[in-house]
């Protein structure tokens, strides 16, 4: 199995900061891959390595089957990129920036460019200095999408966009997915990731801590229970896979690992339950668990 992006055990240090510490990332051709992690986890650094803008201190990378450091130009011909921090030339107009950047990749698709300008509601004649943050972001998005690419690498592409524009952005992702392109999307917005991504990778402190489909990841999370009962909590608390048991007068709350649900349900049924609510595992819990963990990440899981 070959991926369009295949990075293994990437290491990158800046002086004494270890930004990437053995990171693995695998993206299959044709998928939309979410790339998540807390601030400073190493997402942008990874992306710059994938583009050959930074040279990895260790590990191996291949992008569209090539080494991005050695064959940067050939790799870039296949890529549309939106950087994490969009900085435009203040004196150029939006239209000029879009044409300049697409011309450097071989020229824009005129029809696509016009359509994108219309959909994103962007005035191409304003000077970049005069654009709002969201409008600068749109310029970068139009420049990336106005020429068809095999791989789109988007570093927090919706930062600064209003909800309406976010939906325009999602339509573009659906379009390029339908056209068979691959997208690597770094993001902090869970709903966006949930809607768009086929698979995700979560990084923390320069290491990929989870990677897989969302459905598979849900299994890793816990279901939370709120049970109205007069019975004591001990029997439930003693069961395997039960965590964070708390009691407030009649209300008993606890979380259960997905694979240990059956015995817990049996015990709840026997406990004289008078009210019950069960919340499914939420992505947010999953992320918060990874984002919030203190210390080094635990062993890596591959799903």
């Amino acid at each position: 199995m070959t991926g369009i992006v295949d990075a293994q055990r990437l290491v990158k240090t800046f002086g004494r900061v270890r930004a990437l510490d053995g990171l693995d990332l695998f993206v299959q051709e044709g998928e939309v891959h979410g790339f998540l992690g807390p601030n400073g986890a190493g997402k942008s650094t990874t992306i710059r390595v994938l583009l050959g803008l930074l040279r990895p201190g260790g590990g191996s990378v291949s992008v569209v089957g090539l080494d991005p450091w050695r064959d940067a130009v050939e790799v870039h011909r296949e890529i549309g990129y939106v950087p994490g921090e969009v900085a435009l030339w203040p004196n150029l107009s939006g239209g000029e920036v879009i044409d300049l950047l697409t011309s450097l990749r071989g020229g824009a698709d005129r029809g696509l460019r016009a359509e994108l300008l219309r959909d994103f509601d962007l005035d191409p004649r304003r000077r970049a200095r005069a654009y709002s943050k969201g409008n600068r972001q749109k310029v970068a998005l139009v420049a990336a999408f106005a020429r068809r690419a095999r791989l789109y690498i988007l570093d927090e592409p919706t930062s600064g966009l209003d909800p309406l524009m976010e939906s325009v952005f999602r339509r573009q992702i659906e379009r390029v997915r339908a056209e068979g392109a691959t997208v690597l999307l770094s993001s902090h917005i869970l709903s966006e990731v949930e809607q768009l991504c086929d698979r995700i990778t979560i990084v923390r402190a320069g290491v990929a801590v989870e990677t897989g489909t969302l459905a598979a990841m849900r299994h890793l999370t816990r279901t939370s229970f709120r049970v109205q009962t007069a019975a004591t909590a001990e029997r439930i608390a003693d069961l395997p896979g039960v965590h964070d048991v708390r009691r407030e007068s009649e209300l008993l709350t606890f979380d259960v690992d997905t694979e240990c649900l059956a015995p817990v349900l049996r015990e709840v049924a026997l406990s004289g339950v008078t009210g019950l609510s069960v919340a499914p595992p939420s992505l947010e819990d999953l992320f918060l668990r990874h984002y919030g963990d203190s210390g080094r990440p635990r062993s890596r899981t591959r799903v």
Partner: peptide, 15 residues
């Protein structure tokens, strides 16, 4: 420094 080079060097421009 201003981040413009990143935009240019991510295209098919050689260093």
């Amino acid at each position: 420094e201003e981040g413009h080079a990143e935009l240019v060097l991510a295209t098919a421009v050689r260093r």
